[in-house]
Amino acid sequence: MRISKGGLLVVLALLAPLLVELRTVLAWVNVELSVLESAAIGLILVVAIFVWAFWPDNGNDGPTSDSSPR
């Protein structure tokens, strides 16, 4: 695991404000998303973060081992 469970929770929480305002930002460049599409993007991002978090970090465990759980 590349990040502590607490850290993962916080990262997921920080995703919320980004997702909520993503539609507004995209509307500015004339990309209109529906609620369902926003939710789908959210789901994809959550899955991506999970995959990243649980991917075994072979090779570069130098800096990341500091933040892994005790």
């Binding site: 800096p63 500091d66 933040s67």
Partner: peptide, 26 residues
């Protein structure tokens, strides 16, 4: 002091699992 490095990498070294810390930081 907990081993954090870099311009923004140190954020990962903070005790996010501690509700006292996470709550105050958020």
């Amino acid at each position: 002091q907990r081993g954090g490095e870099g311009y923004l990498g140190w954020l990962k070294a903070l005790p996010w699992r501690d509700p006292v810390f996470a709550g105050m930081a958020l």
